[in-house]
Computed example of a mutant assay.
Amino acid sequence: METKRYTVEQIEQAAADLKAGELISFPTETVYGLGADATNPEAVKKVYAAKGRPSDNPLIVHVASVATVEHYAAGVSDRFKQLVDAFWPGSLTIILPLKHAALDSVVTGGLKTAAFRMPNNAVTLDLIKAAGVPLVGPSANTSGKPSPTTADHVLHDLNGKIAGVIDDGPTGVGLESTVIDLSVATPVILRPGVVTQEAIERVIGPIMTNHHKVGAAETPKAPGMKYKHYAPNAQVYIVPTPDEFPAAVKWASQQNVPFGVMAVDTVLGQLSDVRFKDQFSLGDSVVTASQHLFEGLRYFDLNPEVKIILVQGFAKEGVGLAYMNRLEKSAGQQYFTSK
């Protein structure tokens, strides 16, 4: 199969592929998604096959209207409506209970809930409308690898495995959406994102953050809760603070393998006299670091000589909580420590 690179003017052609049961990668403000008709179980199965994704890892259903959610969900609460008014279209995924057999178990992982999102991307909203069906849309990458933030990233992983990708340039947010579960009595964040707990609580009041570790025999309610994610080929080590970079670089230099550095510009400037294989700028703040984290990890995947990547950590607050959630999974919780 030859994977087509569609322009944003070719939405109708891409929608025709989706209606025919093919896979199309679409842009969102967060990362590129791998789209299939959510009402076509055979098409959805192709998503798992193309990604190498475990079959018990549920998929987010992307919609272009609240009416579509109401068609599948078993009633929507005032909290849901408040969150939609505040954050949709946008980087918030909402888990709701489903009507009986509303969506096939291949979409839900066998659960009685489903996750819904309306992405903040005009191209993809038009695509969903043109296809006439909601779309499943996990990140368009090989399962376990860093999520794609450009069409080139998608093609690197999935060229020849999917029908096409709509190229809308780099994504703006760079991290996947916040996931909140409204199917329980007290809403709980299952995956942090740029829509923070503080922002959500200003709209619907107190909520919880998930600290439960999903067991081997347990089906996760949201993506990113159970399996290895975001890992490049090289081993990532998190450097907790800028002050620790000199010691981290000295340690990496003693490992006798090529290594790279991902950090903000001020840190990279302080290391200008240090010799390492390569570097990648995370910009000037935790916000830009979040936008470019996956891009940087993929950058080093294109340089197979690099065996160690030192990546700057940030405080786990605000957007930093989402950034560190992805970075810790990428590193397998490996931190550099000078002690």
Rank of each mutant, 00 (worst) to 15 (best):
V165E: 01
V165D: 00
I166T: 03
D167P: 02
G169C: 05
P170R: 12
P170L: 10
G174R: 05
S177R: 04
S177W: 06
V179A: 06
L182I: 14
V184L: 13
A185M: 11
T186C: 10
T186D: 04
P187D: 01
P187C: 13
V188N: 04
L190E: 02
R191T: 05
P192W: 09
V195F: 09
V195R: 02
V195I: 15
V195P: 02
E198M: 11
P206H: 06
P206W: 10
I207F: 14
M208F: 13
K213C: 11
V214R: 05
G215M: 09
A216W: 07
A216K: 12
A216M: 06
P220I: 06
P220D: 02
K221C: 08
P223T: 05
P223D: 03
P223C: 12
G224Q: 02
M225T: 02
Q235T: 14
V239R: 04
P242M: 09
D243Q: 12
P246E: 04
W251D: 00
S253C: 02
Q254N: 12
Q254H: 15
Q255W: 14
P258K: 12
V261A: 02
V264D: 00
D265C: 03
D265Y: 09
T266Y: 09
L271P: 01
L271E: 01
D273A: 14
D273T: 14
D273R: 08
R275H: 13
F276S: 00
Q279C: 06
L282I: 10
G283R: 05
V287D: 10
V287H: 14
A289Y: 07
S290I: 08
Q291D: 00
